[in-house]
Design a protein around this nucleic acid. Sequence first.
DNA 1: CTGGTAAATTGGCCTTACCAATATTCAACT
DNA 2: AGTTGAATATTGGTAAGGCCAATTTACCAG
Lengths: 249, 249
Amino acid sequence: MFAAIQPRRLYRQVADQIRALIEKGEFAVGERLPGERELAEQLAVSRPTIREALIALEVEGFVHIRMGSGIYVIQQRPRRSAFHPEDLEGPFELLRARSLIECAIAEEAARMVTPAHVAALDEVLTRMAGNFHSPQISIGYDRDFHTTIAGIIENSALNRFVGELFDQRMTPYFEKLASYFEGPASWQQAFAEHRAIRDAIAAGNPVAAKAAMQFHLLQSQARFSESFGEEPDTERGQPEGRAKRSNTI
Amino acid sequence: MFAAIQPRRLYRQVADQIRALIEKGEFAVGERLPGERELAEQLAVSRPTIREALIALEVEGFVHIRMGSGIYVIQQRPRRSAFHPEDLEGPFELLRARSLIECAIAEEAARMVTPAHVAALDEVLTRMAGNFHSPQISIGYDRDFHTTIAGIIENSALNRFVGELFDQRMTPYFEKLASYFEGPASWQQAFAEHRAIRDAIAAGNPVAAKAAMQFHLLQSQARFSESFGEEPDTERGQPEGRAKRSNTI
DNA sequence: CTGGTAAATTGGCCTTACCAATATTCAACT
DNA sequence: AGTTGAATATTGGTAAGGCCAATTTACCAG
């Protein structure tokens, strides 16, 4: 169809030019760009127009205007990419992240645990105890266990992140890989490790809780690695170099 | 201490008034609001100021200016719901989550830091050193510092989360609250704490790094709390109960 | 009465010119 | 050496006026 012609307002054209210069790196961040008067002269427009363009850029977050001092380019923030669909992290990277965070959480949880929390953990464990046959059910209980621990410290931001991190295994790629090693045996092993974590937390022993959690996630990684040789390792790209460093955790 | 007074620019005050009127429903969507000249008269400011305010509102997406016709209220954009719809965590909860995670990260970073990483940290610090006047710029550098530390352990999942957690301060509510206490003085203090963190990490001292990070975030919270009594605490509702738990970290 | 055209009005667009307020710098002073 | 204070640079804001686009109104022909 026809494009509604609309004579672009002058301040927009000016703002576009300046914005392009900033994005191209013509002006470094933090640098002060020419004064209003000079800009007006160079772009052959009046000063109020320059002011309008600068106000637009300020609202957009490109520049910061300091009264009496000058106009400064502001740190360009990657504009809120709502969720990051593409940069899915590799399996080992995720396990490392979980280890770092969940160890700290377990440590803290052991400090502020209450009998009610222990009861909640026990309930998850008893539900888990029998069902080692269906991978989906086991994974669900596994998730419950970890988020219940995160729930002990009652911080919804952390709770949310633990859940998110866990759910990243639910990608098709991850599931296919998991099917190689997840069986009743490995789930039973994981259950034992869970119980150790629960006992350490229930005992109010932060050091032991952290160690138990670390051991559990390390074992998870080991179980995972076992079947990793058969993995084609294609179409994913990044995780080879980083896996080597995961031994420090 | 004294609150850093910063004379809000006139166009912002005007824009705030008009925006408030729109949000309160004083002007219906699609409706044409008074002309530039009339607005200038009613608000007792000059016409260019009105124009600047309208341009700000146009960039923000509140109004649409049709040349030769008038100024029209535009369909209200869905309040930034793309990201995390409404489960915004309270300020202290966020600081607690950051403390737990970033302390663990700092500890680990001190173990695997390289000269290149230290150089990156130093660069952020030097860039930060001069600019204590603009809150926006300082916040940008602050964010850089924390994400750079997270970058040392080269785990994109953690890096992403640290950034996300930091960005939760960018809510309107948070910013309004922050404007009470953020001034050159508090940024300089934060800078010193940053330097301590950098030194501990550069020295490869995990315990000191963790302690420095913990101290820094604790101080952040203290600076924040200072001005929390003055906060009107209206029209927002939630965060009072959660603050009490923050003493354990 | 209907349809179209032209003028008048309204309203935003842009400029020139001026003064005020603030920040920075540097020199003089204690 | 540290502080004070004036000079300078820069942005903040105002005033008045001419110009252009859109809308409305008035008018006229059919």
